[in-house]
C-alpha cells in the first residue's frame, strides 16, 4: 500500500512532464503559425520555383492553343466582397485582388488565342450599393483603366496590341469617368489581336432594349429612304454592345457558386453556349481552374468536329509514306497482277 501523499509526490513530476511536452508542441505550433507566410514565401516565391512554374504554364498554354479554341470567353466576376470578408481585409482590397486576377486571366486568354474576352465589372443594379463603396469602386476602375491603357501601349508588356472597350449605359457614369473612358479607348483603338470588353453599368436586358430601340429607328430610316430591310435575330444582335461578338459567347464562367446569370449575357448565352460555374471566389479563381474548363471545352469541341469529318489519320499517313510503304492508296483495277488460272471441278475431264 502506498500512502496517498506519496502517490501525489510520484504523480506530480509525471504530470509536469506531460504538460511540458504539450506546451512545447503548442509553442512550436504558434511559431509555425506566425512564420507561416515566411515558409510559404520561401517555397513559392523562390526564384527557381517561380521560373519553372511559369515555364510549365507556358507549355500548357501553347499546347492548348494548337487545338480548337473558343472565340469569345466571358467572366462574371463574383465574390470579391466575400473574399475580402474571409481574408479580413477592407472591401477595396478585395476588389483590387479581383482586378489583378482579371488582368492575369485576360493575359492567359490572349496567349491561348481567344479573340475576345468580356467581363461583368459593374451591373446597373449595383448602384443600389452604399454610395461609399460605389465611389471607391469607380476610383478603382479609373486606376485600372489607366493601367490597362499603359500596358496595352507598352511593347514590352504581354498585353501589348489589345483593344479595350467599355460598354454599357454610360449615362449613369460620372462625367470624369466618362472622359477617362474616352481617352483610354482612343489610346488602345489600334489593337487588333485581341479585344477586352469591360461591361460597366451593364445589364443584358438594357442591352436588348437598347438594341430594339435602335432597330426601330433603323427600320423607320430605311422606310424613309425606300430601302428594303427586314429585321431578323442577326440584325438585332448587330446593334448590341459587343459588336461582332454579340451573337454568341462560347464559354461563360461564373465564380463563387451561384448558378444564375444575374442579367448578364442572356442573349449571347441562351443557345449553344457552354456555361461553367465555379465554387471558388473570383480572386481565388486561378490559372489551373480556367485551364481545365477550356481544356474540357476543347476536348469535346474536338470530338464534335471530328465526328462531322471523313478524315482518317491512318490513310493520311499511309499516303504520305510512299517511300516505306509500297502501297498505292487508290489503284487501277487493270494495274493489278493477273490472278491464277480459273479451274472448274465439274468441267474437269479425265
Amino acid at each position: 500500500m502506498i500512502p496517498d501523499k506519496l502517490k501525489d509526490y510520484l504523480e506530480a513530476p509525471f504530470v509536469w512532464f506531460i504538460e511540458l511536452i504539450f506546451e512545447i508542441i503548442v509553442e512550436i505550433g504558434l511559431w509555425i503559425k506566425w512564420k507561416k507566410y515566411l515558409f510559404i514565401s520561401l517555397v513559392f516565391e523562390n526564384k527557381y520555383v517561380v521560373k519553372t512554374t511559369e515555364f510549365i504554364k507556358d507549355i500548357l498554354i501553347y499546347t492548348l492553343s494548337v487545338g480548337p479554341i473558343p472565340k469569345h470567353v466571358s467572366f462574371i466576376m463574383d465574390g470579391n466582397r466575400r473574399y475580402a470578408r474571409s481574408q479580413r481585409v477592407s472591401l477595396q482590397m478585395g476588389h483590387e485582388a479581383g482586378g489583378k486576377t482579371l488582368l492575369t486571366l485576360v493575359y492567359i486568354c490572349k496567349k491561348i488565342g481567344v479573340k475576345c474576352v468580356s467581363c461583368y465589372a459593374f451591373s446597373i443594379e449595383n448602384f443600389k450599393r452604399p454610395k461609399i463603396e460605389v465611389d471607391t469602386l469607380m476610383e478603382l476602375f479609373a486606376v485600372k483603366l489607366d493601367e490597362f491603357a499603359a500596358r496595352a501601349n507598352d511593347y514590352k508588356d504581354p498585353l501589348y496590341g489589345s483593344k479595350l472597350k467599355i460598354v454599357g449605359d454610360s449615362k449613369l457614369l460620372s462625367k470624369e469617368i466618362r472622359e477617362k473612358v474616352k481617352v483610354v479607348e482612343s489610346l488602345t483603338s489600334k489593337g487588333e489581336l485581341f479585344i477586352l470588353f469591360v461591361c460597366l453599368p451593364y445589364t443584358s436586358r438594357n442591352d436588348i432594349h437598347r438594341s430594339m430601340c435602335k432597330s426601330v429607328l433603323k427600320v423607320l430610316k430605311t422606310k424613309e429612304e425606300n430601302k428594303k430591310f427586314t429585321l431578323t435575330p442577326t440584325t438585332l444582335s448587330q446593334e448590341m454592345y459587343l459588336e461582332e461578338f454579340s451573337d454568341k459567347c462560347d464559354v461563360v464562367i461564373r465564380t463563387s457558386g451561384h448558378k444564375r446569370l444575374s442579367d448578364y449575357m442572356l442573349w449571347q448565352s441562351h443557345q449553344n453556349a457552354t456555361i461553367e460555374f465555379s465554387n471558388s471566389l473570383w480572386p481565388d479563381f486561378a490559372f489551373f481552374e480556367m485551364y481545365i474548363m477550356l481544356l474540357k471545352w476543347s476536348f469535346f469541341q474536338n470530338i464534335q468536329i471530328q465526328r462531322g469529318s471523313l478524315f482518317s489519320l491512318k490513310s493520311h499517313i499511309r499516303s504520305r509514306c510512299k517511300l516505306f510503304v509500297n502501297k498505292e492508296v487508290n489503284v487501277n483495277y487493270f494495274d493489278l497482277p493477273e490472278p491464277p488460272r480459273a479451274v472448274s471441278v465439274t468441267e474437269k475431264k479425265g
Binding site: I69, N302, Q306, F311, L313
Partner: peptide, 11 residues
C-alpha cells in the same frame, strides 16, 4: 477522333 485531331487544323 482524338488521334485524328493530330493532323486536322482547326480553331
Amino acid at each position: 477522333s482524338i488521334f485524328d485531331s493530330m493532323y486536322v487544323n482547326d480553331g
